[in-house]
Amino acid sequence: MRRGSFLTLCLWAGFAFLYLPILVLIVYSFNASRLVAVWGGWSVKWYGELFRDPQVLGAASMSLQIAAISATVAVVIGGLAGYALSRFGRFRGRTGFSTMLTAPLVMPEVITGLSLLMLFIAMEQIVGWPAGRGMTTVIIAHITFAAAYVAVVVRSRVAGLDRALEEAAMDLGARPFTVLRRITLPMLMPGLLSGWLLAFTLSLDDLVIASFVTGPGATTLPMLIFSKVRLGVSPDINALATLIVAVVASGVLLSGWIMLRTERRHARQVRAAFRREGAMDGN
């Protein structure tokens, strides 16, 4: 089993590579010394400094608002797109449709950011909207690339769904909208939830696109982090990073737990329904 142990070694070395920098950041966020090379003992002073910095708080609240709004719209657009790709079979323009959903996933951010800015400027000249750039333009930009990610998540989720449930509801006379509300959406919920979380974190994380399309007065958190990092080492960034890691990790774990629970409950309900049906057949 030499090969097996070699693979296991590779796997854990890979995980060490992925997690070591994050662990170092977390440890250094508690370093009392300003210098990276010097360990000045444990301290939480950088966290205090962070919460007293109005710039950080303002940028964080701006970023959270942008992320919440753009994730919500992205779930609607990306959800529709993912459903269409998975269920509508062949339709006219399908190839172009799927390319337009794949390309934003890999398109270098400098290109996406620049081209959106050019569009916004042209739109302002032609139709007068959006007037100037700021939160609205950042939200539109984030919706666009996040929707492509949501479509990937929803598409794979829809592919794994049992069509029979929707068809059965139709056969029993449910109207299309009722089927959507009572069957399709609840079954898709875990996919939509993880799509929303993904869109939220992607928006919270974006520096490049936001830098192009934002305007005065709309500084997002990554833009603030970037300007601080560029000036040299700033220990409060370690504290901020630790907070972000903590929030994201608990968000992912929580949603994983909720999904697992809903799926189990769903499985129980299906089993119970089958049992009832069996009992009725017996009578």
């Binding site: 657009i77 797109a81 459903y83 269409a84 269920r87 449709f97 666009t144 068809e167």
Partner: peptide, 21 residues
């Protein structure tokens, strides 16, 4: 498949993302 796949549903499902993108 039902729900979104009535002809109107299909149209909405394809048109909104297409227009946005």
């Amino acid at each position: 498949s039902p729900a979104l796949s009535t002809s109107r549903g299909r149209l909405i499902g394809i048109l909104i993302p297409t227009a946005w993108l």
